[in-house]
Design a protein around this nucleic acid. Structure first.
Lengths: 197, 197
DNA sequence: GAGCGATGTATCGAGCTGATACATCTGAAG
DNA sequence: CTTCAGATGTATCAGCTCGATACATCGCTC
């Protein structure tokens, strides 16, 4: 482990490259599409990250097919190595503050398809507590504030709180769905312990 | 103008100090309460900003009342100078990208009480176009994506888009309210051009 | 055959975050 | 009365990220 990279970015890159090899420009567009309204990565962080992953042997430059060998070297396509896949699995297994903070939750969620059900649940619940904790802080800070706030400030607070409450409800739905699925597949296993399909 | 400070932070600090003098710690808490769920400033940006404002003469350290003179020097209370107030007015008059981006919109909104009606409208409309533009980008990027996305990614997109749509509706309401008030006070002025009460 | 916008790699200065250090004040527990 | 914990308070730093910028190539049109 040479470089101590940004975690979030590392997951984003490894996760994207796992689906199929990409070059920098493409990678950036894809990530920013994937994350939609949540986040945008810049080259200033992407390229250093790729460089670090290269030196750590988690990714390699892909050889172009033989017939294009003629000195052309414009795109640099990266793909995962075995170590890279291992590292990705490791990252996908972690559920901790670094997976439910604002900047990172979106990435982790976007790769839920590759994440174990139990880890998914812990991340969703962690995110929910994080938001609830934040609301609690705001509410008590607000209550301690002596001076009345003007109507614009109040409206801003109200809107902010409402947005977060909505996200919590969204998380609740997701958590319920996850639990239902877990129960279902559990009882499937109970009913017919060794048949599949 | 010695330092080219961060604009947003500058507005935040000058605006807060305009309401009443504060010291660093208090200033930070107040700002983070004010902005609720939107933003949090750190000391690493606050103190350098205060330093810059000091050297530019926009704020000064307030003298403690005489009876506490005895060498005690723990708190450093800052207050606006005349130049600082002028600069604040200037910042409050500007409506531009720097007032409707994610990081800055909240601050500008929080000080709308001190902002002219016309500027308020332009900022709200600018914010709205910004969000609509972003949604447009995401939608076309999504349409261009060949490969179908898995259900988690889709759900993330859906949630993100919905959140932004909600914010646009919120902005619409605010804009309507502002317009109605502007019309009302306009017709007041028309009806009785020189009476006040 | 030249002009142009999209594609593509890469770097840099400015500025922010999160951590950390350190001092003081207050109140509660022993 | 002392001591200890936690809030208050000022301040800095390494590491990282953003936004701008530079520069080259590709494919397209006029």
């Amino acid at each position: 482990m040479t470089g101590s990279r940004n975690g979030v970015l590392e997951l984003a890159v490894l996760g994207s490259l796992h689906e199929n090899p990409l070059h920098g420009y493409e990678l950036r567009k894809r990530l920013n599409t994937l994350l939609g309204m949540f986040r945008a990565f810049s080259y200033g962080s992407l390229y250093p990250c790729l460089k670090g992953l290269l030196t750590d042997g988690l990714i390699v430059e892909e050889e172009p097919p033989d017939d294009v060998v003629l000195g052309r070297r414009s795109k640099i396509v990266y793909k995962l190595t075995a170590e890279g896949k291992e590292r990705l699995q490791e990252l996908l297994t972690q559920a901790g503050p670094s997976s439910w903070e604002d900047e990172s939750f979106g990435i982790h969620f976007a790769f839920f398809r590759h994440t174990e059900a139990e880890v998914r649940l812990r991340i969703l619940e962690g995110r929910r507590s994080r938001l609830e904790e934040r609301m609690e802080n705001v509410r008590t800070a607000l209550a301690r504030t002596r001076e009345r706030l003007d109507s614009y400030t109040l409206e801003l607070q109200r809107h902010g709180l409402e947005s977060v409450e909505r996200e919590v409800r969204w998380l609740n739905e997701l958590i319920n769905t996850e639990r239902a699925q877990a129960d279902k597949s559990q009882s499937e296993r109970d009913k017919r312990p060794d048949s599949d399909e």
